[in-house]
Amino acid sequence: MLSASVRRTGLLAPTVITLFVFMVLPMGLMAWMSFLEPGTYGGVQWGHYSAKSYIQFLYEWDLDDQLVLNTDYVGIFLRSFLLAGGATLATLLIGFPTALYIALKDEKARNRWILLISIPFWTNLLVRTFAWMLLLRNGGLAEQFLSSIGLVKEELNILYTPTAVAIGLVYSFLPFMILPIYTSLEKMDWKLVEAAFDLGANRWMAFRRVILPLAMPGIVAGCMLVLIPALGSYFIPELLGGGKSLMIGNLIQNQFGASRNWPFGAALSFALLTVVMVTMIAYNLRFKRAPGADK
């Protein structure tokens, strides 16, 4: 009979080795490569270290090799945060009432609603983003509909703008907001709300003082689940925002395509990963131990 710890090691080995070799090591390699010199035709120059990729984020080199401030990349980062943050807020404004509505239904109806909310999660997001192109493009269905009711006279001109990207982001990540909020509302003891009513609270006060605080873990989890993938999204801005480098994801992809600057691409990815990790750690420290939070 094998000892318990030997057996445990054997059981864990395939997963741990796979994740270590093909996930942790590549992340480390990426961080390392961000400090290398780019090769002329893509690739990197091994052994040639420089902080160029990080300097490049803020400055560019002019013809005399002088550093000049360049805010293009900072602008893309800012726009990514604005778009992702705006999308998070919008999904919250739509998602919270939706989750509340579902949580107040009887069990059968609740299950049906939850199934309907989760189906989009299981269907291909790329294809669903494409569907928005059909809706939003000039001469597309939104324009046909709006001009038939007389709201739009000329072309809609919304596809390939940040607005279209925002619509796409909200659409894609809305289920991620609804489901965790619903989970925390569903677990809630509604007798507390009843008690608030008994003690003379009106609906708004009961909502603000009882429901909202108790739903907080779900709200925060939902915000994380929307913000993180929205920040790193690639094909939503690519397809709905046109060819321009609208968000970090496009900028990163560009470094491995047209721009051929791998170290810069690695540095951008590493910066994005750092932002995500810091957010996650802050979330863990602040909310994971709060009462009523998920394990």
């Binding site: 590549p26 390699l29 993180i228 790193g232 999204s233 990163i252 990815s269 994005l272 996650m280």
Partner: peptide, 15 residues
């Protein structure tokens, strides 16, 4: 689950 997909993609490609 945590890392943005594009970051995983870049790291895997480089690796």
């Amino acid at each position: 689950l945590l890392a943005p997909e594009i970051v995983t993609a870049v790291a895997s490609l480089l690796f």
